[in-house]
Simulated scan of single mutants.
Amino acid sequence: MNADKVLVERRGNIALVTLNDPGRRNALSREIVRGVSVSLQRALDEGARAVVIAANGPAFCAGANIDDLRDGWMERPAPDEDPALMFERIAEFERPVIAAVHGPALGGGMELMLACDLVVACEAAWFSMPELGHGVIPNTGVALLPRVIGMRRAFDLILTRRRVAADEALDIGLVNRVVPAHAVLDSVLSLAGQVVEAVPPGALKAAKRNLRAHAAIDWERVVKSPLDVPKTEWREGLDAFMQKRTPDYDRFWREPATTLQGIEGD
Results as ranks from 00 to 15, higher is better:
Leu145Ser: 00
Tyr249Ile: 14
Phe252Pro: 13
Ala91Val: 02
Lys231Leu: 10
Ala105Arg: 04
Ala240Met: 10
Asp266Lys: 15
Pro79Ile: 10
Thr258Lys: 12
Arg177Ser: 13
Pro58Asn: 04
Phe60Leu: 08
Ala192Thr: 08
Leu170Ala: 08
Phe252Gln: 00
Met113Gly: 14
Asp228Tyr: 14
Gly150Thr: 00
Glu75Met: 10
Trp234Leu: 11
Arg209His: 06
Pro138Ala: 09
Pro22Tyr: 09
Arg89Glu: 05
Leu7Pro: 04
Val148Lys: 10
Arg163Asp: 09
Leu132Arg: 08
Leu144Arg: 00
Thr259Lys: 13
Pro201Gln: 15
Pro180Gln: 08
Thr232Tyr: 12
Leu159Pro: 02
Asn26Lys: 08
Asp117Ile: 00
Asn210Lys: 07
Arg30Trp: 02
Glu46Ala: 15
Pro180Ile: 11
Val51Met: 04
Lys244Cys: 15
Ala115Met: 00
Met86Trp: 03
Gly193Trp: 06
Gly107Ala: 04
Val188Pro: 09
Pro58Met: 00
Met1Gln: 11
Gly135Ser: 02
Ala54Glu: 02
Arg163Trp: 02
Asp21Lys: 05
Ala166Tyr: 05
Ser29Leu: 07
Asp218Trp: 03
Trp126Ile: 00
Trp253Thr: 11
Ala15Gln: 14
Ala124His: 08
Phe60Gln: 03
Val8Thr: 13
Leu112Cys: 09
Arg42Asp: 04
Gly103Gln: 02
Gly103Val: 04
Ile172Cys: 06
Pro22Ala: 00
Glu236Arg: 02
Ala84Gln: 11
Asn65Gly: 07
Gly72Asp: 10
Gly63Glu: 01
Phe60Met: 03
Ala48Val: 14
Met86Thr: 10
Asn20Val: 02
Trp219Glu: 04
Arg34Leu: 13
Val175Lys: 00
Ala15Leu: 13
Leu112Thr: 12
Pro83Asp: 01
Glu168Arg: 11
Pro226Trp: 01
Val38Asn: 14
Val101Ser: 06
Leu145Gln: 01
Trp253Ala: 14
Arg30Thr: 09
Asn176Pro: 11
Lys205Trp: 15
Asp4Lys: 07
Gly109Tyr: 01
Asn20Lys: 01
Gly35Asp: 08
Ala257Ser: 10
Thr246Leu: 15
Asp218Ser: 13
Val120Tyr: 09
Val178Cys: 07
Gly107Phe: 03
Val136Gly: 11
Asn26Ile: 10
Asp80Ala: 06
Asp71Val: 09
Gly72Thr: 13
Gly47Asn: 14
Gly262Cys: 05
Met113Tyr: 02
Asn20Gly: 01
Pro138Ser: 15
Val51Ala: 05
Leu144Cys: 03
Ala121Cys: 05
Ala48Arg: 15
Leu44Asp: 14
Lys231His: 15
Glu94Phe: 13
Ala240Val: 07
Trp73Gln: 15
Ala213Gly: 07
Leu189Trp: 04
Ala206Pro: 08
Pro22Gly: 00
Val119His: 00
Ser128Asn: 05
Pro104Gly: 11
Ile172Asn: 00
Ser128Cys: 05
Trp73Gly: 04
Ser187Ala: 13
Leu159Asp: 07
Arg24Tyr: 11
Ala257Asp: 07
Gly108Met: 05
Thr259Pro: 00
Asp239Gln: 10
Pro79Lys: 12
Gly57Met: 13
Leu189Gln: 03
Ser37Cys: 08
Met86Gln: 02
Asn2Ile: 09
Leu28Ile: 06
Leu28His: 03
Leu118Lys: 10
Glu88Tyr: 02
Thr259Phe: 07
Ala203Val: 13
Val195Cys: 08
Arg163Cys: 09
Val199Ala: 14
Pro138Ile: 04
Pro230Thr: 03
Met86Asp: 03
Pro226Glu: 00
Gly193Asp: 14
